[in-house]
Amino acid sequence: MPPQGLEAVLIAEREALLRFLRARGAGDAAEDILQDLWLRLRSAQTGPILDPRGYLYRAANNVMHDRFRSAQRHRKRDGDWVSVHGDASAASEPPLPDRMLIARAMLDQAEAALHAEGERVLQIFRLFRIDEMGQRAIAQHLGLSLSTVEKDLQKAYRTLMRLKDVQDAE
């Protein structure tokens, strides 16, 4: 059965979605990206969607973010990456234990950096990004004001961005 709700919203929002994709840097590929996205959503969809408009924009936003990251990765690989390993294909799948160890070491560093901003900053970031709790729910859960949660989250994100900048530059 075609997901009529989603399709109806797609038709109504098509121009706005294309404009959003272009604003996100899709350029001439906007139409293709939207088409591709629609086919994927259509085959993946299983249940009724509560907020079809938000669902479509969110999916479009994710596609563009993935493109941003893959562009970043290519830049990085063209730089220092291949020089270490020589062979890009061999490098693409490091053994899992190594990956875990490296990730753990970096995670420790990131957690320590957040912790240095205050234990609450770390806790709120975890609730928001790891447990995917909304800001309002976090405020309620911890008995804090929404603006306190927001400020702590901004602190956490700024810290992570700084840390990531340093590591990307190394």
């Binding site: 970043q72 990765r73 990085k76 690989r77 220092d80 990456w81 270490v84 390993h85 490098a91 693409s92 799948e93 490091p94 190594d98 990956r99 160890l101 490296i102 990730a103 070491a105 970096m106 590591q167 190394e170």
Partner: peptide, 11 residues
């Protein structure tokens, strides 16, 4: 581990 930080981007 740090020299191989490029893995992270991949992971």
């Amino acid at each position: 581990a740090w020299r191989r930080r490029g893995y992270i981007a991949m992971a």
